[in-house]
């Protein structure tokens, strides 16, 4: 709301770069230069897809919000990688992570939005049921991916989800008016980056 989605999303999408650098420093991961180039291409591609013209004035300081979100996403991936070996199965790790997230948002919702909860549940439980189930499977896959692969590689691949969201919107909702040069160009950069980051060198 402060700076607009088309400005916030590309900044937030920079999380793989932050995760990659944190992984180099704290997990001693050693990505090749070409793989780091792949991370950069994915971030550029997602940034291109999710950016666009935004009306209204904004303050530069408000760009710190999506930057903080990207930072927390990067730091979160490092914590996941460090913590997941403590669990016999990643499902349990995913449950504990999701429960912690639920507590955070539930405390805020019950403190400040209590009067809106019942109405929200009645009017929107179906899409949130689908979203919740898909999010749970996503979290399980996220934990499993970070258990088995390097952070810089996994976080970059997971970050391609905005590209899939755009493709879903185009195919399922027939939002063809949303196709600008940014979508195919961003898709080429993202897929190219995903290939580069997974090259065995």
């Amino acid at each position: 709301m402060k700076i607009g989605v088309s400005r916030a999303a590309p900044i937030k999408g920079s999380s793989p770069i932050i995760a990659a650098f944190l992984a180099i420093f704290f997990l001693s991961e050693r990505p090749a230069l070409l793989q780091l180039g792949g991370v950069f291409l994915i971030v550029c591609g997602i940034g291109l897809i999710s950016s666009g013209k935004t009306e209204g004035k904004w303050r530069r300081i408000d760009a710190l919000w999506p930057l903080a979100a990207a930072g927390f996403a990067g730091v979160g991936a490092i914590f996941w990688r460090k913590g997941i070996p403590a669990f016999p199965q990643p499902l349990v790790g995913a449950l504990i992570g999701m429960t912690a997230a639920l507590f955070m948002v539930a405390i805020y919702a019950f403190t400040f939005k209590r009067d809106q909860i019942l109405g929200g549940v009645k009017s929107a439980w179906r899409p949130f049921l689908l979203g919740g189930v898909a999010g749970a499977i996503g979290n399980f896959c996220y934990a499993s991916a970070l258990q088995k692969g390097e952070v810089f590689r996994m976080v970059s691949l997971i970050q391609i989800s905005p590209l899939l969201t755009v493709l879903f919107a185009l195919t399922l909702l027939r939002k063809t008016e949303a196709i600008t040069w940014r979508v195919p160009a961003g898709a080429v950069l993202t897929v190219g980056g995903a290939i580069l980051v997974n090259l065995r060198l």
């Binding site: 979203g131 996220y142 989800s161």
Partner: peptide
Amino acid sequence: FALGAAFSYAVADM
């Protein structure tokens, strides 16, 4: 698993 997570997050996002 990473691609599965990306797909699931995209469905959840929609």
